[in-house]
Design a protein around this nucleic acid. Structure first.
Length: 472
RNA sequence: GUCCCCAUCGUCUAGAGGCUUAGGACAUCGCCCUUUCAAGGCGGCAACACGGGUUCGAAUCCCGUUGGGGACGCCA
């Protein structure tokens, strides 16, 4: 039988990093086995589901390049089918109407807890005749879960996990307003879609005991389960909003590449020998759940930064530029002109080695995106107004008007200039750097000159001399 | 409170009883390169949580302890 996996997020927020990894694992498993990867939006909680979340989830998945097969299924559109399953179980005597109020339930749990028992519904209406139902209380439908024996999960990641059925309570299948709960919908929909492998976060492990009971009651074969360990923050607790950026969309806005995010997520809880940089193709070829670890993994930025820097460096300049453009318009707040685009493309190879994120890259690119006269910070002015520096720049200027404008020629010219005066090259380069970029650090000075071009470079240097004199 | 799960360098991991003096990567530290900052190269520091078994032999199997995490909704 061909593999069918699914990613089934609830649209109550943007795509969480942990959910993204779940999606990635499901996607990879399906692609590896040449199976099917489905997307289902679990919007049975009408109060908390939002259009914005649905949009964010689609965006996130598309950005990560995780494509799904077949149409998206919106779970609430199938509510009638779910309700029918619940009513069938009532008819078969496997489920029943329960009239307990919210207050009563709260009391039951408190009472059980006080006695050192698991906090659960006590089965009050399990064997009572509905004739005794109080008037005006709309009932829920609960599953009759056997109270003897135990339930076993043969989990593909966690191994066999057993729980005593006394821990399980008669869960609600249909709410008093007639809408299905997650427990019911998930089972019905996974069954209808012929899902073969349910790969999801470890926080669902205990739900699986309940869902297994439901499969049993409905007389359906349960899929295989694989509960992957959760992603934790640097403090060891389940990754959540208080750890800072948590949605994939926010990582995109922080300037991370989808390749880096996927590679990073893939290596959280899974490994393939000594391989660290793993392409999409390799991931598909190598990924399988038997190598997924059982321990939760901490997410830390350092690794993501490193991977991101790597992927930025290896991307072609042309495609990196395309990804960089959305980050550029912010600081310069004007559309990219052709001159700037050409300049940037030329300077990108030196720039991309010096940044961890697109945001950082955009910041460093700023000197290429402005024209003389460029703004000088107080720190820059302090360098430029030193008379030796000013004189040095003045002395270099005539050379620059005649030298052949190539990286190699510029290098020869400036190095000769320095050695003729018996000064270290740094003494020449650093004032020039301040004058040309307004910054303490930049790519190689020859590269900066080459990238800016003769006209712009000379203009900046002339302006720097004037500005320096003025402040001196 | 009840139940379930987990445990190799600071972090992510390799490890399927002898191939292990426990390997790689990130981070960190040092050196080289060098016009700044990076990148790159070379090297250093650094782990099998603890205690019992099983076995000729255990990071690997079993039990316990400790520590961490997760779940206990008419949320998903």
């Amino acid at each position: 039988m061909s593999v069918v996996t699914r990613f089934a997020p609830s649209p109550t927020g943007s795509l969480h990093l942990g959910s993204a990894r779940t999606a990635l694992f499901n996607w990879l498993f399906a692609r590896h086995h040449k199976g099917t990867f489905l997307l289902r939006i679990e919007d049975t909680d009408r109060k908390r589901s939002t259009e914005a979340s649905i949009k964010a989830i689609f965006e996130g998945l598309q950005w990560l390049d995780l494509d799904w097969d077949q149409d998206v299924v919106f779970q609430c559109s199938r509510a009638a089918l779910h309700a029918a399953a619940a009513h069938r179980l009532v008819e078969e005597g496997k489920a029943y109407y329960c009239y307990a109020t919210l207050e009563e339930l709260e009391n039951m749990r408190a009472e059980a807890k006080a006695k050192g028992l698991p906090p659960k519904y006590n089965g009050f209406w399990r064997d009572r005749s509905p004739q005794l139902a109080p008037s005006g209380v709309p009932p829920v439908i609960r599953l009759k879960v056997p109270q003897q024996g135990e339930t076993l999960i043969n989990d593909l990641v966690q191994g066999s996990v057993t729980v005593s059925n006394t821990q399980l309570d008669d869960m609600v299948l249909l709410r008093s307003d007639g809408t299905p709960t997650y427990m019911l919908s998930v089972v019905v929909d996974d069954h209808e879609a012929d899902v073969t492998h349910v790969i999801r976060g470890g926080d669902h492990l205990t739900n699986t005991f309940r869902q297994l009971q439901l499969y049993e009651a409905l007389g359906w074969k349960a899929p295989q389960f694989a509960h992957i360990p959760l992603i934790h923050g640097s403090d060891g607790a389940k990754l959540s909003k208080r750890h800072g950026a948590v949605s994939v969309n926010s990582y995109r806005d922080l300037g991370y590449l989808q390749e880096a995010i996927c590679n990073c997520l893939l290596r959280l809880g899974w490994g393939h020998g000594d391989d660290e940089i793993i392409t999409r193709e390799q991931a598909i070829a190598w990924f399988d759940i038997d190598h997924v670890g059982q321990a939760p993994a901490r997410f830390e930025f350092a690794r993501l930064d490193h991977l991101n820097a790597h992927y930025m460096r290896t991307l072609s300049d042309a495609s990196l530029l395309e990804r960089l453009i959305p980050f550029l318009t912010k600081p310069i707040s004007v559309p990219l002109s052709d001159t700037h685009r050409t300049r940037l493309l030329k300077g990108l190879s030196g720039l991309k080695r010096r940044a961890k994120t697109l945001v950082e890259l955009a910041e460093n690119a700023l000197p290429y995106l402005i024209n003389a006269p460029i703004p000088y910070s107080l720190e820059a002015l302090n360098v430029l107004c030193v008379s030796e520096n000013n004189a040095l720049i003045k002395a270099v200027l005539p050379l620059l008007t005649t030298v052949e404008w190539t990286h190699a020629a510029l290098e020869t010219c400036l190095r000769t200039f320095a050695s003729d005066r018996s000064i270290g090259f740094g003494k020449v380069a650093q004032p020039l750097r301040w004058a040309l970029t307004g910054c303490r650090v930049s790519p190689s000075i020859f590269e900066v000159l080459d990238t800016l071009g003769r006209t712009e470079s000379v203009a900046r240097l002339k302006d720097a001399c004037q500005t320096g004199e003025h402040h001196g």
